[in-house]
Write a protein that binds this DNA or RNA. Structure first.
Lengths: 187, 187
DNA sequence: CTCCAATAGTATCATTGATACGGTATCGAT
DNA sequence: ATCGATACCGTATCAATGATACTATTGGAG
């Protein structure tokens, strides 16, 4: 039995945490939780549960009332698959894809002012996200018992990351040409 | 004329920087440069230049000697497309996909020791990458004139990021249960 | 001259991402 | 009661992608 892919685990995990759900509800749960560090397009949230049901990790049941939506339950096999995934401390490396970094990397092929404009824009963007994550963190409170600790931890990392971005782009926008070999700020 | 996608721009950019290339050479260039912040599977490096040639941004020429490989040249249109991309300070937001963060997020559904094991493993991994990027930065020297500054800048950001990861996972592995609402380290 | 490793490229196929489209419930206003 | 607006809910489609397996060429080493 081959391991689940990350998005599959998201589905399993959310259903394990919040109980049986329709794909539509999944969509909402994803948006309010993992979306910003693991986006999943909504069409996938219909395909993935179907596949997991084939594998016996979820069980599909059709509502009898009104709209007859498809509700997916976690099975015993699903729970053990999830636990197994969680118990394995190994994880593939993170992949970051940042178009701005690409532009920076090729900046020498463009015009002189491009870097500063890019840096300013990026600094502003990342300041915005930094504030967003900070305020989300501040809004956490003990009443959302489910996943409070998880949320807090993940936000902390997001904040550290955004801080790094802000530092980087701000310093680039104020001083675009330091000695490239100077290791300042790299230790 | 619709804008190029990021991987297309990578191809344009590398050819602009290093001159005409075969897909195979592209593969090597990608590996030594953008690979760690914008991986491109090698099969793509055969498909993308072909598409760019259709669009008139590259021009294909077949070697006359030996293996008759397909060499791709930058056209004038290609250069302006590249410049145009670089001149636009706007860039889509970065996407980070980190399976370890996912495991952390769902950690409450697993066993108690899982988090620490995960954190230790991740801390080790990221310490490794941090050192890798630091040493690559240290190895930069003025003789590789092409793209020196770009390389240095990108490495600086990578180092900041890895530093953030290391801080995060190390603190989690030594103190897995701080007050989740305590904003320490988040300002 | 032949065999190996490195080089170079192609083929295949399920999975994605993006987006457009099609139905259904709900509720207030007429 | 019914009309229409608005949210709710799901499917369909299609090209692009990722992963991997496979084929072919070449240049030495022995």
């Amino acid at each position: 039995m081959t391991e689940c892919t990350p998005p599959e685990c998201v589905v399993l995990g959310l259903i394990a945490r919040h109980g049986a759900m329709t794909p539509y509800e999944l969509k909402a749960r994803v948006q309010e939780s993992v979306d910003y560090f693991w986006p999943i397009p909504h069409a996938q949230l219909y395909r993935i549960p179907a596949r997991l049901a084939e594998l016996g990790l979820l069980q599909e049941e059709t509502e009898r009332t009104g709209r007859r939506r498809r509700v997916f339950h976690l099975t015993a096999a699903g729970r053990t698959a999830l636990k197994q995934w969680l118990a394995d401390p190994h994880a593939p490396e993170p992949e970051t894809r940042d178009p701005a970094q690409l532009k920076l990397f090729f900046a020498d092929l463009g015009d002189a002012g491009d870097v500063v404009a890019l840096a300013r824009e990026q600094a502003a963007q990342h300041r915005y996200w930094l504030e967003l994550y900070r305020s989300r963190h501040a809004e956490l409170n003990l009443s959302d018992k489910v996943g409070l600790v998880s949320r807090a931890r993940i936000l902390k990392l997001a904040i550290l990351h955004e801080q790094a971005y802000v530092d980087f782009w701000e310093s680039l926008s104020t001083d675009p040409d330091p000695d490239p070999l100077d290791p300042a700020g790299t230790n």
